[in-house]
Amino acid sequence: MRTTALSCVSGAALFQAAPDRRALVVGVATGLAAWSVVYVRFSSRGWLLPVDTLVIMLLCLTQRWTVPPDAVVDSTNWVLAVVTVTAISAGRGVDRVVARGRGTRLRCLERIVD
């Protein structure tokens, strides 16, 4: 879902970008596509969520150069779409990590009680 949304949003980003900013937007979108491959490949690793959060934070910081000012004001920019999809998909990942952590804590408590 995340990769498909990123593909659609990247097209919108190119359409929305000013001609002098298109090369930068292409570079950022290509970087996100590469990160998406890493994300899919290593989806079960514990380091993935913090690194993904860092990547998305850096993407948010690029809005000054990659999103037209009027799109920032009315919340119709492609960065917002990427952040939204990431937050939704990361929420599911956090649930898995928390559930795994609870199981570990419960096993530790069982050993202490026994």
Rank of each mutant, 00 (worst) to 15 (best):
M1E: 05
R2A: 12
R2F: 14
T4L: 09
A5I: 12
L6N: 07
S7P: 03
C8S: 13
C8Y: 14
V9W: 06
V9Q: 05
S10T: 12
S10V: 04
S10K: 08
G11S: 08
A12R: 11
F15V: 15
F15D: 04
Q16W: 06
A18G: 08
P19Y: 05
R22D: 00
A23N: 12
A23F: 11
A23V: 14
L24H: 11
L24I: 11
L24G: 01
V25M: 10
V26D: 14
G27H: 12
V28F: 00
V28C: 08
A29K: 02
A29H: 02
G31C: 08
L32C: 09
A33H: 10
A34T: 10
A34K: 11
A34Y: 08
S36H: 07
V38L: 15
V38E: 09
Y39V: 03
V40P: 07
R41E: 01
R41A: 10
F42K: 08
S44W: 08
S44N: 14
W47M: 00
W47K: 04
L48K: 05
L48R: 10
L48Q: 04
L49F: 05
P50Q: 03
P50K: 03
P50N: 06
V51R: 03
D52Y: 04
D52G: 15
T53W: 01
T53R: 10
L54P: 02
L54Q: 07
L54I: 00
L54E: 03
V55K: 00
V55Q: 04
I56F: 02
M57H: 12
M57F: 09
L58F: 06
L58H: 10
L58D: 00
L59E: 02
L59D: 01
C60F: 07
C60P: 01
T62F: 10
Q63Y: 01
Q63D: 03
T66H: 00
V67H: 05
V67L: 09
P69N: 04
D70H: 15
D70E: 13
A71H: 14
A71K: 15
A71E: 12
V72P: 02
V72R: 15
V73H: 09
D74G: 05
D74W: 07
S75R: 14
S75G: 02
T76E: 06
T76Y: 01
T76L: 09
N77M: 00
W78E: 06
W78F: 10
L80H: 09
A81N: 11
V82F: 08
V82S: 00
V85W: 02
V85N: 07
T86D: 01
A87Q: 05
A87H: 07
I88V: 15
S89V: 12
A90R: 15
A90N: 15
G91M: 00
R92G: 15
G93C: 06
G93P: 00
R96G: 03
V97W: 03
R100G: 02
G101V: 07
G103N: 01
R105Q: 05
R105T: 13
R105E: 12
C108R: 15
R111A: 13
I112L: 14
V113Y: 08
